[in-house]
Every structure is written in C-alpha cells, then in structure tokens.
Amino acid sequence: METSTLPLSSSTRGKLISAGYTSLSSISSVSSTDLARDVNITEAEAFEILKMANHQVTGSSTSLINGARNAWDMLHEEEALPRITTSCSDLDKILGGGISCRDVTEIGGVPGIGKTQIGIQLSVNVQIPSEFGGLGGKAIYIDTEGSFMVERALQIAEACVEDMEEYTGYIHKHYKANQVQLKPKDILENIFYFRVCSYTEQIALVNHLDKFISENKDVKVVIVDSITFHFRQDFDDLAQRTRVLSEMALKFMKLAKKFSLAVVLLNQVTTKYTEGSFQLALALGDSWSHSCTNRVILYWNGDERYAYIDKSPSLPSASASYTVTSRGLRNSSSSSKRVKMM
C-alpha cells in the first residue's frame, strides 16, 4: 500500500513522500511526534495521518475484511425490507412487490407517459400506515421541472384514503372502531417539497439531504423529478457533467443505504443513433446508466402504457401494463380490480 492511496491534500502527500514515507507501513510504525518533526507538519495533522494509515493497514490485513457482511445475513435483511406499492398490482408484481427501499430506482419515459404521476403516487403511498401494509413514512419530492401539481397530489391522496376506508370497512364489517386516521391534508403535510432551479441547487440539496433526513425522521422515499432537466440544459463540459453526476449518484446510493429509504429518479428520454437507426434511450448517457440499481422504462405499447424492467440485479426483465386514472395509478384491465393494500 502506498502513501498516495491516503485521502490527503496534495501538498501534505508531497511532503510525506519527499520525507521518505512512501508506504503505509512506514508511516504506521512511527509516532505522531516523529512524523510531525520529519514531515514538518503540526502534531495534530500527523495524528490524523497516522489514524488514517492505521485504519487502512488494519482494514486490509485482518483475515475477515472490514465492513463486509456475508450473503446469508444480507438475504435476511433484504427479505425484511419493506416495499412501496405503486397502487398498480401488475406493476408491483414485476417489481417484486413495489419500489424497494435501500435501492436507487430510475424511471424514464417519453413526455406525457406518466413519470410525474408515478412520482406523486409514490409520495402518497409511502404514507400508507403499517396497519394497511404500508410504511407509514414521509416523502421528499425534489421538483426540478416545476411539474408537481399540488391539486393532483390532493386528488391522489383523497383516492388513497378512500381506498383505505373501504378496506377497513371490508375487514371490520361488524364494528367501525378502526377508522382511518390519515386525512388527505395530513398526507400533503408529510410531503416535503423542494423546488430546484439550477443544477447547483440540485447538487447542494443532495449534499444537504443527509442532514435534512436525520432531522426529519421517517422519510422513506426521495423522488427527484427529474434528475435530468438542469443537467441537460446548462452544462457545456460533458466530461465534467459525467463526473458530477456520478458523484451525485453515489450520494443517493449512500442515502438509500444509510436511512434505508427508496430513491426514485425520474429521467427523460433522448434519441440515440445505434445500429443504423435512431432509437429512444434514457438521457444522460451511457455512464449514467450504470449508476442506478434498477431501471424501469415506461413506454407506449399500442394504446396501453407499459413499464419494462430494463435493468435490475434481482428481478427478471418483464413488462406490465398500467393506466393513469383520475384516482392515480391503477391496473390497466377495464374491470379495475381494487388494489390490495396488503
């Protein structure tokens, strides 16, 4: 292991190397006072470097790797993970029960296919209380395009509450004690809305979310509608864009794991020239498409809206149809089976 692997500023790194501390083991064997004198830095800085170096050395030399968990434990953890229903059982089925927490899911499609609708639906559905098989969480809605319509959110919230009431009525036919506590107004109260007007604000907000979510407990879904808009408009340097975007994707990933919440990124589409013809593809380029765990593409198939799982480490690729009704997202069959909340 070399000194250059330590996350240090370049001048400090230069000083270390010119003083002969080229490998981590050479650093970890000296005391902080010696290091400070040799390298001509303060003792506090030397102490920090030693801490980092020791961490790296012990991290890689012990037999069991630091921070790793075995697959069996992970399986149990994953099975216990709640999922957020989309209110469309066909779609839930291909998603393995809904949008999974601790994952970053990207949803893309042509204008008017219903991306924003899914976003609003999820921000309502995440609040379904646990008695109804939901998460009882809160939602963060990051609106970069200004397309969040609060009237629509209210419509969907009202429909959701109605469905829950119907469901309690069905289960507790004889006594009406178990009333639905949630009111549509409360649902709106629990959607934290951020209007982002430039890519700088977007980056800043993503950096800040960590703190925001620690302060506001129970946030279970973060929806970004859309991740693309500002990055598509005012970035000249595409290489820089890719770097900034991938850092942002990592931060989303980190948030998803740390607070075990679902991150849903809505993406736009673009046309791409492949194999001799123009085809639709999700925007932001090839390297971006690696950065999400799951990727769902919404498309028209004849007269019906379909969702297709384009990429997922655990789900088979499949497609399912859905419709957008005045009550929100639903199954597409005209018989309109009631959505089960369990």
């Binding site: 107004k185 109260e189 959607i191 934290f192 700088t200 604000e201 907000l205 950096n207 800040h208």
Partner: peptide, 23 residues
C-alpha cells in the same frame, strides 16, 4: 466546507400542504 456550502445553497423546504394553502 462542501456541507456548509450545500446547506446555504440548497432551496427551502415546503410541505405540499403549505404549498396548496399558499396557492
């Protein structure tokens, strides 16, 4: 530093309910 800059530059939060009431 990035954390502080982000905090200062990130837009304010509104709940959807207050958004509607404002409207």
């Amino acid at each position: 530093a990035v954390r502080l800059i982000s905090q200062a530059a990130s837009p304010p939060c509104l709940s959807a309910r207050s958004l509607m009431e404002q409207k």
